[in-house]
Structure formats: C-alpha cells, structure tokens
Design a protein around this nucleic acid. Structure first.
Length: 270
DNA sequence: CCGTTGCCCTGCCAGC
DNA sequence: TGCTGGCAGGGCAACG
C-alpha cells in the first residue's frame, strides 16, 4: 500500500522518465478510474499535453502539465504507476495508459480499482483538505502538539487522518508509534510533551529511512521501474504478531483500532 | 466542527 | 481438492 515513502520513490523515478514527454495518445479502459472536471473528457483533454514536472503531495503523485493542469493519481492500496518501453511489460489490471511520442508509455494499474487518476484545472484547490507535509519545515513540534492537544481520538487514528498530516498510512503509523514507545490507543491529548516530541521525531525518522530504502513492498507496491522496495526488511512491528519486540523482547500483539489492524508491543509502548 | 460508520473492490487464505 | 466466507484497507459520503 503506497504511503508517503512509496509515492515519493515512484515520483522520483517518474521525474527522470516522463518530464519533457508529450502525451500523444490516452487509453482509458475503465472510465470510472479517470476523472475530469464536469463536461471535460479526460482522454481528449490530456492528449497533446506535455509533462513539465512531477511531485508528491501526501500519498498523491502529481504530473504537472504544460497547460497548468495536473494529473493527480491516488494509488490507494494496490495502484501502480509504471513506465514501460512497450506493451510487453504491461501489468495486469492496467486501466489507463498514457502513450508518449517516441513510443514509451506510463501505465496506471490497480487490480482492486480503488485508485483514481484525476485531471484537475490550474486553479483547482484539489489538496486543500490535506494536512501538513511531515517532511517539511511546517511540521514543527509546536504544530504537532497543537494537533494533539485537547483531542480524545486515539493517537494512531490522528496519525492516519490525512487532514492533519498528509502521507502516513497504517505501516508507518505503527512503526512510528513503536519507535516513540507510545501505545497506539493513547488519547492524543494525553501525550506528554516529551512523548509528543519523540513521536514527531519518530514520524520523520521512519519516513526518511523508508524513503532511503525505496519504500516497503508487502505485496503490491513497486516503483516507477516496476522494482520492489526494501523497507519491509526493516519493519519492527507491522505484521509481526507473535514475534518478539526488537527492543524489549515481549510478544508483539495485533489489535484493531479505528477499523485497522494495529501492531504494537505491550511491553514497551505505554 | 467532530467523530463514526459503511461502502467501494478483488486477491488471498483459513477452514471446512 | 475445491469451495466459501471473511479479511485486507484509503478516502469519501452520509450521518448523528
């Protein structure tokens, strides 16, 4: 499931492959995947556009187009964006294909069809609901403490809320809470100041380390070259129920919190 | 505003 | 072996 580090890795890979390319043809095989403003036809509007930049916002990959419009792709759980030289390497469940002049192509695939590729106009504030970028200078201890204070929501649910911090998903929420030695169910407002500082630091640390390892490949994620990441070998608690905690040796448990599987250590997360 | 619930969808796998 | 029911989960709409 692509979270911030996986989307960052995809975007870095795409930058060297698609910037400067002109989209000569667009295939939309599953129309509900490709969204556009009212009365705008996705394929017609995108055809002829040139890609002038690529960036990430939260868990979204954004292709910047020469007209000022953007193609915003949300990968959800199983979505993939992969550049290929030809049709031979096409992934199963490819729903949208951007063909470039010269023959290469960018395919968007998603077996579960939860992901979306959306064309947004230059003035469309598509990301106004998204919270702070955790790897930006705006994610200060003060900003984080402000989010936590007075709230009864379990701190893990707050980490997953994209309106507050953009880009953290289940894997990195679990890992950051373990690193900060904080119990996932702890009410946000009950974190001590040192705990809040530890957690902010842990979020930044775990995201940066995961980007260094090119993301976590549990079952579906691959980068823009179709290659797996390496952070799955560095996970401490995610998916590790029954295994010993790498820090204190107690057994890692799996509970359900905010409808999500939650892995943590009863021994050292308080 | 805030928090919760249900829905979308298919691959996988435990259990029979 | 073959089937099936339940689970996985990010974002969004609807609701209280």
């Amino acid at each position: 499931m692509p979270e911030l580090p996986e989307v960052e890795t995809i975007v870095r890979g795409l930058a060297g492959k698609v910037v400067g390319e002109t989209i000569s043809r667009v295939e939309v095989r599953l129309p509900r995947i490709a969204l556009a403003p009212p009365r705008v036809d996705f394929a017609a509007a995108v055809t002829g556009e040139r890609i002038v930049g690529v960036h990430r916002r939260g868990k979204y990959a954004v292709l910047e187009l020469a007209s000022g419009a953007s193609l915003v792709t949300g990968l959800r759980m199983t979505g993939r964006l992969v550049v290929a030289a030809n049709a031979r390497h096409e992934l199963p469940g490819t729903h949208v294909v951007l063909h470039f002049k010269g023959g290469r192509r960018l395919g968007f695939s998603d077996v579960r069809t939860f992901g979306r590729m959306r064309l947004v106009g230059s003035n469309e504030a598509w990301d106004e609901k998204l919270g702070v970028e955790p790897l930006s200078s705006y994610f200060t201890p003060e900003a984080f403490i402000g989010m936590l204070s007075g709230r009864t929501t379990p701190v893990k649910a707050l980490l997953l809320d994209q309106r507050r911090i953009a880009g953290i998903g289940n894997i990195y929420a679990c890992e950051a809470l373990w690193e900060a030695r904080i119990r996932p169910s702890r009410p946000s407002g009950r974190l001590t100041k040192p705990a809040a500082h530890r957690l902010r630091r842990a979020i930044v640390d775990v995201l940066e380390r995961a980007i260094e390892m090119r993301g976590t490949s549990i079952d579906d994620y691959v980068d823009a070259d179709g290659l797996q990441g390496g952070f799955q070998n560095n996970l401490s608690v995610y998916g590790k129920q029954g295994r010993p905690c790498p820090r204190c040796g107690a057994g890692i448990v799996r509970t359900v919190l905010a409808q999500r599987g939650t892995w943590w250590c009863r021994g050292c997360q308080k």
